[in-house]
Amino acid sequence: MSNQQPQVNGTDLPSKSTAYYRVNFTGQAGEYFKIWIVNIALSIVTLGIYSAWAKVRTQQYFHTNTLINGTGFQYHGQPLNILKGRIIAVVLFVLYSFAVNSVPIIALPVMLIFVIALPWIVIRALAFNARMTSFRGIRFNFEASYGEAFQIVLLWPLLIIVTFGLIIPLIKHKYYEFVINHSSMGTTSFRYNGKISEMFIIYLIAMAIAAGISTAMMIIGMVFALFAGLASAADESSALMIWLASSGASIVIVLYLALYLLMWAFIKTKTTNLIFNNLTLDEHRFYADLNFSQMAIIQFTNTLAIIFSLGLAYPWAAIRMTRYQACCIQVIVSDNLDNIIAGEIKKVGALGDEAAGIFDVELAI
């Protein structure tokens, strides 16, 4: 990966000395496979109870192996707190199912209560995930009002139906803006300055990709149907018709998989670049240069490996994708990183641990 200085959107960088730190991920497939397989086995044996410990082990591994200037992130989530949240979610689901089946008339009121509570649940979940993460002793944070979450979680998505999905880029823009602008590292807030038009362009190109592959799928299907019809009219053997039908179906399935993977890779690549290239932390900036074709190749080969290994290649695929995405991200610090961290620690003082303890239960959503 090139270490050349990126061209960053926005105004000129501050006059202070600028330091560029490329993010590095040092996780290894073999190490993660051991964690992953043990997590699955113990979660099955304990009927899901160990899944809380499994999540903590996984998060700790990925956090500590994601490095900036040689220092990894830390994950502070506690398994018992995560387990409490999951138990609460399961109990509420069981009570809801029992109540609805026993007294159907209460189904609508109960569902309405859940819908009303959903923005609050989202805030709690985002706050928990942020406050359980730290870098060099500085905890991240997330704070937002119920009204703001209500718009993002419930109000804007309602427009998807009436706009036939055309409003999805706007919703994605609003969501990233909501999450980033209410997040902070210690006392310093993140800011997102991306344009709505840029998000619309990403989705318009993705739709063009989908339209092209869909057209190819239709043409191939029609061609094989035509040959099958000609074979039938000529009283050819049924084996030939079966072969034509199965071949056509196989090609359509492969093209459908390619369509999904290409759209995912394109949207993931472009939105990640858009977000990081318009992300700031005070006067410090970020830069991402993910490549669409590289992402598509990694995702396609990862998917094939997982399919043909019956899932056993998942750890290798996860490590491979994470390593590529991490190495394509730079942190652009308008000063020395050590000075920034030291100053932030002084501002935060003793508030960090207390704030993190407020949201000590992860709510499952």
Rank of each mutant, 00 (worst) to 15 (best):
I180H: 04
I329H: 05
L230T: 01
S43A: 00
K16F: 04
Y203F: 15
Y324A: 06
N291P: 01
L244Y: 00
I297M: 12
V103R: 00
A208S: 13
F25M: 05
P6T: 03
V94H: 01
S183T: 07
F93L: 15
A258P: 02
A305Y: 02
D289C: 08
V45M: 05
M222Q: 13
I106Y: 02
I209R: 01
N39F: 04
Q330V: 09
Y96G: 01
E362A: 10
I242N: 11
F200V: 14
T272H: 05
W156P: 07
A52K: 02
Q151A: 12
H182W: 05
W156Q: 07
A350V: 08
W243H: 00
G147S: 07
R22I: 06
A228V: 05
V252N: 13
D338V: 11
L155W: 15
K172D: 10
Q5C: 02
Y324W: 10
A326T: 11
A239M: 13
N101D: 11
N291L: 07
S17K: 15
L281V: 07
K270E: 14
I358E: 15
D338P: 00
L158G: 02
I297W: 14
T64K: 15
F300M: 11
R22Q: 09
G27D: 06
I116V: 14
F128L: 06
Y324D: 07
I49E: 00
F140Y: 14
L244Q: 03
I123V: 13
I306F: 11
L83C: 03
A265R: 00
A249G: 06
G186S: 09
V153G: 01
I253G: 00
K195S: 13
N24E: 14
L261H: 06
N302D: 08
S250C: 15
T46Q: 01
F25W: 01
Q5Y: 11
L47N: 05
Y32F: 15
T18D: 00
L80M: 10
A318V: 09
A225G: 00
G10R: 07
A149C: 08
I205A: 11
Y256R: 00
T11N: 15
N193S: 07
I251W: 06
H284T: 05
F73V: 09
G70V: 07
F308I: 15
S250W: 09
A19V: 09
G137N: 10
E148R: 14
I340T: 04
A296F: 15
V100E: 05
